[in-house]
């Protein structure tokens, strides 16, 4: 089985600085393999080992996603090889544009049975790109996947949905997005990190992928820091803990919060 893991090299907005104007400065947020994507690497590796297949990492974005560090970070997590589309035109691209380029790269890789992805990216956090990718490819796309095994002519997929665990028989090809805790990803050891340097990396040229033009553009009219964060607090002095506790409980009762 030929499995592509679509992952993101992204900054963590936990380390963002947000100005009062709502401008977000991510320069202090170090990029990394996005939080939940290692789960997809691990699921892919286990499925490929069980079926005698190959795991190809795939990431697309601006030029900053392709560095020796970013290559090593991905290739040390159980991939056989890596495919990258890094182009200035994809800096700050919206999710549908990213999904369209991913789809073109999946087609260029060829004979792909399964695309696996993480639950959602650490920065945009919508969980949308894998499902839009499925839409572009015309394949079935399922999110909330907690387990996947190979079966005759396809896959048996377990999903963790509000109504309970749902089992779906899925023919390939398909796109699956894992839950954040589907499996515990392995921690890359020194051997994995050294081995990563020897694995092949293929850089695809965006222009050669023949990606259709976007059907709409986004224009940011205004930014703001979210309102509602500021509250005026009544402060009690905790140097007398019992006194402060009694005052607080009284105030909460009066406010109807208890």
């Amino acid at each position: 089985m030929k499995i592509v893991v679509a992952y993101k090299w992204a900054p963590n907005p936990q380390d963002a600085v947000v100005a009062t104007t709502g401008e977000v400065d991510l320069s202090r947020a170090k990029p990394a393999v996005s939080e939940y994507d290692p789960v997809a690497f691990e699921l892919a590796r286990r499925l490929a080992d069980a079926t005698g297949g190959e795991v190809v990492g795939l990431t697309v974005g601006g030029p900053s996603i392709d560095t020796p560090l970013s290559r090593k970070a991905a290739l040390s997590r159980g991939l056989d090889r890596l495919v990258v589309v890094a182009d200035a035109e994809l800096e700050d691209a919206d999710g549908t544009r990213i999904a369209t380029v991913l789809a073109a790269a999946v087609r260029a890789i060829g004979d792909v049975d399964l695309v696996l992805a993480g639950d959602s990216s650490i920065d945009v956090a919508q969980g949308q790109v894998p499902l839009t990718l499925a839409g572009v490819l015309g394949w079935l796309g399922l999110a909330a996947v907690s387990a996947v095994t190979a079966a005759d002519g396809g896959l048996v997929v377990e999903r963790s949905l509000p109504g309970g665990t749902t089992v779906v028989a899925v023919p390939t090809p398909a796109v699956l997005a894992a839950t954040a805790d589907a499996v515990v990803p392995r921690v890359a050891g020194m051997k994995d990190i050294l081995g990563a340097a020897k694995k092949p990396v293929e850089v695809l040229d965006l222009a050669a992928l023949d990606v259709p033009a976007p059907g709409a553009t986004l224009a940011t009219l205004a930014t703001a820091k979210p309102a509602g964060g500021e509250r005026t607090a009544t402060i009690f002095d905790g140097s007398s803990p019992a006194g402060a506790a009694a005052q607080l409980v009284g105030a909460l009762r009066q406010a109807g919060a208890l």
Binding site: P130, T132, L133, G141
Partner: peptide, 19 residues
């Protein structure tokens, strides 16, 4: 929801517009 996002993904792909 997971199902909602899948339907929107298909629509967005067909129209080539963001979600």
């Amino acid at each position: 929801s997971p199902g909602g996002r899948a339907l929107l993904g298909a629509v967005a792909a067909a129209l080539r517009v963001p979600v």
